[in-house]
Each structure stands twice: as structure tokens, then as C-alpha cells.
């Protein structure tokens, strides 16, 4: 049993409450939890993903506006399929929604994922996997606004950090989203929480074996593969506790990460 500090949604603004988070999430499969993957598309025909991708859309420009049409073009790069594979390996019953923003003609990088994020929030997908980022200052304000909207709508946005010296948006907006950096851990459930750091979560992101184009698999390294690990774990949490707010999800992750630290740092003969 995990004790999580937070506010009960029904008594919001009345009094702080503690709730008990049972460990039953560890046996969950992400059933009934919608996960949006804003990326290069998903190859829904991959043997690991058949029947799991509920809908696929892709962005196009129409009269300077971004429109989303149903997509049948699959994945243009492999990355979206890889992320979907990681989410699915942890939460096999999660409902995946592909929002393809890469490769749309005339769509700038920042504009692309901003539009994808807006689409995901409008559709109220519970978890949004965002492996894209930008360092362009002009996107700071609109992204900040968008993430506040996601937070208020109850969408949990999980973003991959970049590993460069300068900050990239949105991964530095730690107050309203969950940002993740790679670790060399191999156990998919052994993630960490670095309280006080800009990028708070660590999750496996080195040589991760996952789905790839052509019904194949690849070993992948990068922060963008740590991100879907956390998305998968949140899907497990939300199956058992769909009432959790984004704030409570983050608190739960913090608490579980502390447990992980204790569990995984103990010598083998004491870990049980």
C-alpha cells in the first residue's frame, strides 16, 4: 500500500487529503486508458501492436491551419512505432491513439507538435506521450498555456528531455508535466524520481528492445525511449485509479520511485 499526499478531487479547495494507493496497479494492463502518441505515426500492423491502435490521424496544412485527417500512412520514421511498442510492453491493454505530426509538408517543427498537443487535449486522451521538443523561444508562451490546459483537462503529459546544455520546451515546464531522462536500468518498472531537478523522472532508455518498422525489432537508446516507459506505468496506475489528477499521478510516481530506490538498492538477499 502506498500513501500519496494530494487533494481529493471531490473536496478540491476544501482540505488536503491523503489517499491510499493500493499496489494492485502492478497487476494492471492499462485497460480502458487512452494514450496519445504525438510522433512519426504508428505501424498498427506490427505483430506487437495489432488491435491496440484505436485511431490514427495525421496533420496537414489547409489555408495556414493545421487539420487532422484519418491516417493510413503508418510510420515514416520508426520512432512512433518504437514508443508504442514500449508503452504496450508495460500496459498491453492500453488504447493507443497515433497523432502523426512529423513529415507534414509546410509544417514547422514547433508548430507541428503544438498542433498535435492541442488535438490530444481536445480529445481528452488521459496520457500524452511527447518525445518532441523545441528550443525556439517563440513557443515558450503558447506551450506553457497548452500545458496548463492539459493539466486542467486532466490529461497527463509526459515529455522526453533532450541531452543538450540548453533547455528545450516543453520538458523544462516541470510544474505542469512529467519530464523524463534515460537511465541504464534494465527493469522497465525501475524508474527514479530526482526531486529538485528540472527533469524529474529517470527511466530505462539504453538499448531498449522494442518494435520497429517491417514487423521487426531494434535496440534503441535515447531519452525519447525513457518517456514511453513512464507513460506505460501511468497507464497501469490509471486503470486501477482513473480518478487520479495529473498532480496525484506525479505524487504517486514520486512515492513509487522512493520505494524502487529502497527495493533496487538493497542487496539481493535482503530485497524481499
Amino acid at each position: 500500500m502506498t500513501t500519496v499526499s494530494g487533494y481529493d478531487q471531490n473536496s478540491f479547495r476544501e482540505k488536503p487529503a491523503y489517499f491510499q494507493l493500493a499496489d494492485d496497479w502492478r497487476s494492471a494492463r492499462g485497460r480502458g486508458v487512452s494514450v496519445a502518441i504525438i510522433d512519426s505515426g504508428i505501424d498498427a500492423t506490427h505483430r506487437d501492436l495489432q488491435g491496440k491502435v484505436i485511431a490514427s490521424v495525421e496533420a496537414r496544412i489547409d489555408n495556414k491551419k493545421v487539420i487532422f485527417d484519418p491516417s493510413a500512412t503508418g510510420d515514416s520514421a520508426g520512432h512512433g512505432t518504437a514508443c508504442a511498442g514500449i508503452v504496450s510492453s508495460i500496459a498491453p491493454d492500453a488504447e493507443l491513439f497515433s497523432i502523426k505530426v512529423l513529415g507534414a509538408a509546410g509544417l514547422g517543427d514547433g508548430q507541428a507538435f503544438l498542433a498535435g498537443l492541442e488535438y490530444a487535449i481536445k480529445n481528452r486522451y488521459r496520457i500524452i506521450n511527447l518525445s518532441l521538443g523545441t528550443t525556439k523561444p517563440q513557443y515558450f508562451a503558447p506551450l506553457h498555456d497548452m500545458l496548463d490546459r492539459a493539466y486542467q483537462a486532466g490529461c497527463v503529459v509526459v515529455a522526453a528531455a533532450n541531452n543538450l546544455p540548453q533547455p528545450s520546451f516543453p520538458s523544462v515546464f516541470s510544474s505542469s508535466l512529467i519530464s523524463v531522462v534515460k537511465s541504464s536500468e534494465t527493469d522497465p518498472l525501475n524508474f527514479g524520481f530526482r526531486y529538485g531537478e528540472v527533469i524529474e523522472l529517470t527511466a530505462p532508455g539504453v538499448n531498449v528492445r522494442t518494435a520497429w518498422l517491417g514487423n521487426g525489432y531494434r535496440n534503441l537508446t535515447g531519452n525519447s525511449f525513457a518517456c514511453p516507459h513512464i507513460v506505460g506505468i501511468i497507464a497501469l496506475l490509471l486503470e486501477k485509479h482513473p480518478e487520479l489528477t495529473p498532480f496525484q499521478v506525479k505524487s504517486a510516481l514520486y512515492t513509487i520511485a522512493l520505494e524502487n530506490q529502497r527495493k533496487f538498492q538493497l542487496p539481493d538477499n535482503l530485497s524481499n
Binding site: A77, N219, L220
Partner: peptide
């Protein structure tokens, strides 16, 4: 193409 659009470095191996 993904790295250009996402700004994310990545390593891929067979």
C-alpha cells in the same frame, strides 16, 4: 528525419 524534427538524439541497433 526524426532527429531533425524532434531535436532528440537517438541510437538504433539491429
Amino acid at each position: 528525419g526524426f532527429v531533425l524534427s524532434s531535436g532528440q538524439p537517438m541510437a538504433v541497433a539491429d
